[in-house]
Design a protein around this nucleic acid. Structure first.
Lengths: 273, 273
DNA sequence: TTGCTCCTCACGTCACGTGAGGTGGC
DNA sequence: TTGCTCCTCACGTCACGTGAGGTGGC
């Protein structure tokens, strides 16, 4: 018979852990002195303690350990639990390896440029959404070409949607497709809408497809100055081993009269890794 | 201005998370309606939310994130935090990889033999300890040769320690060293002792060195039947990619009159990985 | 009226670590 | 008397998830 302290030393565990295992029924002392409440453990209980610690070290929860020890699991069941644990460990290692890569990318930016790495970029999925849109050609992907075109389109579109009896359900979305003649691009000015007539209006209603993976950054201020933000985003994509899959979408989160107070989310689609 | 639900959707976080970040001061809404308590967020706050999520995804705690965002950390400080995080991630990946190896070793045992793998084996450090000991030669490492010798030694040793006025402070330890003539071995029957005279008694007092890494298993029953347990231990050492570094120590945890109720821990030293 | 969104508590999670406050034997 | 070990609460950890119970506008 060992006292709790002696037993803890032999088993390389804390006294607190033994009390915890007692209270949860995982490992009850062989005897408890009724007068003092002192716990006494038999040497043979060391085998069970070792089993508990070994399974715990594999990363099983105490509840799982209890099941494995008390339910007399079969070899086949044990195999199932180990296979599950293997999968969990693998995905955890993969996730941590990914994290490590991102940490290292940021460290490289600091080492090589001595500047603060961008930390406000998110990779996320952009869900599909139904929009009403008008399109127009732009000569080049520069703000000075795009802004006038897009402003005109949104002005018309808003009115037409109202006239069609439909309602706008969220912030405006602009996106770009290559021009059919290979020169410049087509800008799409879109507004999310709910139901409504399928035709009989000058705009088109289409379903923007989901973007599986987009790198996003929030741009503050007039879109006339968006190039720097796009550059930060492009740089980040490169540094982190992603690849762009086309023109970015622009989500106009806030568009007050003062253009310098605009807030826009830039959503650049990424090639699947 | 967005309601908490809209803001949560744009930021790909739960409403509960935004409330949590509000309550901890990490991200306060731009405005709270005094009458209803409704939270309203400005589009520009999405940048901060993105920073929070990005840093959290790297594995920083919310407290660390708060420091990084609110204390205006310098590039150098950011580098320090990233270097620290890199080290944490590396060691976590290493630990999980180790765990994964152990899980896979157990799975191999099941696949190849269809039997339950041993789960009561622990790798642990055995601390140094001062003992009084007597030694004797044995012809071979078989129980039938060892038992009579060791029993005699312990009988003598116990009496001699008492006569020397010393006290036994823990369970008996037996260990083996190769015989000088290369034939058989020397068995050491040792008992942990506290202080006492350095000489003037027939036994030797020595300090058993620490064992950095020992694979241990608890043997139940008479030591006459210890071979099977030793085999399990040896098999485990091999399966898990360790290597034995010599004869095992035996720690006699419980030695009642009925030899079948003995409990012994076998401690096999391992070569450092 | 029903649904939807918003609100504020407040418990639960997981495996203990860490006091606080007290006892019993050398 | 001082140290040491033992005991029983009970809070704290970390970042929310998940009800419970209630409100306000379409």
């Amino acid at each position: 018979m060992f006292t709790i302290g002696e037993f803890a030393r032999h088993g390389r565990v804390s006294v607190r852990m033994l009390r915890h295992y007692d209270s949860t029924g995982l490992l009850r002392p062989a005897r408890i002195d009724p007068a003092s409440g002192y716990r006494f453990y038999a040497a043979g209980q060391l085998a069970r303690l070792n089993r508990i610690i070994a399974l715990k070290d594999l990363g099983f929860t105490l509840d799982q350990v209890r099941t494995m020890l008390d339910q007399e699991v079969s070899t086949e069941q044990m195999r199932g639990m180990l296979v599950l644990r293997r999968a969990e460990l693998r995905s955890q290692i993969a996730a941590d390896t990914q994290r490590l890569g991102q940490v290292e990318a940021r460290l490289r930016v600091i080492e090589e440029e001595g500047t603060m790495p961008a930390i406000d970029i998110q990779v996320k999925k952009i869900p599909a959404i139904r929009v009403a849109e008008l399109t127009g050609p732009v000569a080049a992907m520069e703000p000075e070409f795009i802004t006038p075109v897009i402003q005109g389109l949104y002005g018309d579109l808003g009115m037409q949607i109202r006239q069609a009896g439909m309602t706008v359900t969220g912030p405006a979305i602009a996106y770009y497709t290559p021009a059919p003649d290979g020169d410049g691009a087509i800008v799409h000015a879109a507004l999310p809408v709910g139901g409504g007539p399928a035709s009989g209006h000058p705009f088109e209603v289409i379903d923007l497809p989901e973007i599986g993976q987009a790198a996003t950054i929030v741009h503050h201020g007039s879109m006339d100055n968006c190039l720097a933000t796009f550059q930060v985003l492009g740089r980040w994509i490169e540094d982190n081993g992603y690849q762009s899959a086309g023109y970015a979408r622009e989500l106009y989160l806030e568009c007050p009269a003062d253009k310098d107070k605009w807030v826009t989310e830039l959503q650049e689609p990424l090639l699947p890794a």
